[in-house]
Computed example of a mutant assay.
Amino acid sequence: MQNSAKLRTLSFLLGSFFLCACSSSYQVVKSNRGEYKLSKDLAVDSSIIRTYQPYKLKLDSQMNEVLGYSDNELTKKLVGGESSLGNFFADAALVEARKTSPQIDFTMPSTNGGLRNDLPLGAITLSNVFELMPFENELIVFELKGSDVQTLLDYIARTGGQPVGGLTMKIKAKKPVDVRIGGQPFDPAKNYSVLTSDYIAGGGDGISSFKNPVSSKVLKLKIRDALIQYIKETKIKGVKISSKLDGRMTND
């Protein structure tokens, strides 16, 4: 028992020694704890406002920048497996990605759940795009075997339709039929170049189609940046965004 007590004492002293040796010269000498209830009745602290106000004004000026204009409201409401917002989202990502990877056959850059906010009729601001796409997701191009593309098509059909570009299909009894990629019938024996996000590629929303690609290429292009660039380009051209339902995805 005496030996055990000595060992515990020695262990404590050694631990204290190493703790002191590794710690900085600063020590807590006093600590207070308090609770503050937050409510609408809480008085405004003008000193805090004065501190953050210059930063808020600068951020507001940036977020209120008008990137372009839309000819119609773009909503995520699904009609027959597609939505005006989903069509815009997929088309914009595909156009911008093809500038560096023109071989891309089709895209599914997001799931319906990833479309976080509608875009308004008229002016589209930087804030609108951040509200639509608040995540830092990157675009990646994958070369997939036809069998892996088939599992992706099965997922799209099983979930009632997803945002796609460069691809048309019909959904019958939750199965993909009459699939066309780039205007040509889908060939399960071929490899296809597919654009998607790092979230989906990593298995997001239960998608496993990108686990064993033939090859992959990170474009170093965030989806949000692709959307911003696409909207800005329409403004430079003097045209408005007009994304409507076009039958790329039907659900019988």
Rank of each mutant, 00 (worst) to 15 (best):
R98P: 09
R98F: 01
R98L: 05
R98I: 00
P102K: 00
Q103P: 12
I104W: 00
D105W: 02
D105M: 00
F106N: 02
S110H: 06
G113S: 15
G114N: 01
G114R: 04
G114Q: 02
L115V: 08
D118C: 01
G122D: 09
I124Y: 01
I124Q: 01
T125M: 02
L126P: 03
N128T: 15
V129M: 08
F130K: 07
E138R: 13
I140G: 06
I140P: 04
I140Y: 07
L144A: 10
K145Q: 15
G146V: 14
G146T: 15
A157N: 09
G160K: 06
G161Q: 00
G166R: 07
L167D: 07
T168K: 07
M169L: 13
K172S: 07
A173H: 09
P176R: 06
V177G: 08
D178T: 11
D178R: 11
R180G: 02
G183E: 10
G183V: 08
Q184N: 15
F186S: 11
D187Q: 15
D187A: 14
P188Q: 03
N191R: 14
S193Y: 05
S193R: 12
V194M: 00
L195Y: 09
I200W: 05
A201G: 09
G202P: 13
G203V: 01
G204R: 15
S208K: 15
